[in-house]
Design a binder for these strands. Sequence first.
DNA 1: GAAATAGTGTCTCTTAGACAGTATGAG
DNA 2: CTCATACTGTCTAAGAGACACTATTTC
Lengths: 262, 262
Amino acid sequence: MSIKPLPRRRLRYRTKKYRSPDGLPTDICIFTITSKARYTKTKSLPTKQLSVLLIKRISTTFGEQWALPGGFSKESETLDECAYRELKEETNIDRNVHIEQLGTYYKPGRDPRGWIPSVAYVSLVHEDLLAHAKADDDASEARLFSVEEAFELQLAFDHREILTDALARIREKMLQTNIAKAFLPDEFTLSELLQVIETVVPAFKVSDRGNFERRLLSTTRRQGILEPVLAADGTPLYSTEYSNSPAKLYRFTDYMPVAMIY
Amino acid sequence: MSIKPLPRRRLRYRTKKYRSPDGLPTDICIFTITSKARYTKTKSLPTKQLSVLLIKRISTTFGEQWALPGGFSKESETLDECAYRELKEETNIDRNVHIEQLGTYYKPGRDPRGWIPSVAYVSLVHEDLLAHAKADDDASEARLFSVEEAFELQLAFDHREILTDALARIREKMLQTNIAKAFLPDEFTLSELLQVIETVVPAFKVSDRGNFERRLLSTTRRQGILEPVLAADGTPLYSTEYSNSPAKLYRFTDYMPVAMIY
DNA sequence: GAAATAGTGTCTCTTAGACAGTATGAG
DNA sequence: CTCATACTGTCTAAGAGACACTATTTC
């Protein structure tokens, strides 16, 4: 969506004792992990990349610019509802995906149109759900950029700062919570999980995949984060999607240990 | 501070196409840990309690009510600056204390005066800094409540929800970061640190203080969170404030490991 | 000696991580 | 036989946590 011009009342109130913000938009960092098949000699895991959805914005002052999708919230909706609405407008996604408030941004002059803070949100969506992003809606263009690409752009407003914070937030939570599930199918292999973690947090390095597996499945503190997917007869289910050697399928449970430094 | 009545323009704009919020206040959960000496036969650690600062608010609709301190932000200031300003107005604190944005709250009807979201902040301050809280300022009353007491009150607006989230936030961060330092003097003993953690997170139970010490000081991943305070000649400094047996003094360094579940 | 804290020693079991090895099945 | 993945076995060092013990100083 394009941001609509504001009514003219701003000037009229400039000299008044009480002024109120000229609007409270939400902007949303929609992250996804894009996959690309690798065309190797045998079945293999695709390469993955953390990407963010940006829209092209035509600004009278700045010309063409990429920006986070967003729009003004209404009195009749909560901020979360507004973020969901934006998400749906941009991506057509209409189900429960991971969405969380990142923070509210304002400093004098952040928006040349007036006193306009922004409530930033972060959403993590599975690649498949973005299949028909933005086929409809208005003329503005939307595109996925890898986060590296996104940081090379000149983003509108303070969206670079928001994106930086958003990235820091999901990196932190990727290691401390099970938000990895947002980027995975319901049932996944351990290699897929590991790949998602490594894609979001490049600093997370596991020297030996086998040790990762053992740690995750047989350490008492972590026991129960994952459970194997079982067939009706109680035998575990396997996938051969990414390898000839069948890989056991897992899913996240509701249990999550508390990470702590002490 | 008492929340000022809003100008009358709200009604005038109700029928306009675009409406904007009627203000964007910040509300701030100011937490502290209060100590009470224990009058035992020998020196002992005081009992500690997690407390939050509330102010008495006279509402025309609800009568007397306790609420989080807060006030409207201005176009000329950032939200953080507004929160700091509120903190200073309530507590006279004018130095760098821990302050962080918690989130922005809005749902239709949360404030009977109009479309008023609130940007909630959390601040952690050392008890000593609250010594002359609220000696000045306007007539409204301010008081520290233990968090248990606070939850027994009928708080204004959605302040109970904010307080719940704030508490969850600081409990989480108490275990995952070194925010404990906000409640400690620069130099402290391990018992004091442990007590702060236990006060904020009652679920954090250490069966053996000696094991806590060993873990914190000699586990490689945690090596360097704390450093002993040394005298000029390189010998460690001790405190006998809370025990006859001298306790080594430590301080936090800048190093903090990343807590993770994988 | 009792009280309240601050430590150390030691033992057992668990965990981390390195390294090597086997298995799978398509090309 | 190779490739790319999925494991399992084993060894060592480090860590967690239980329990018992000593130390310090004042009352």
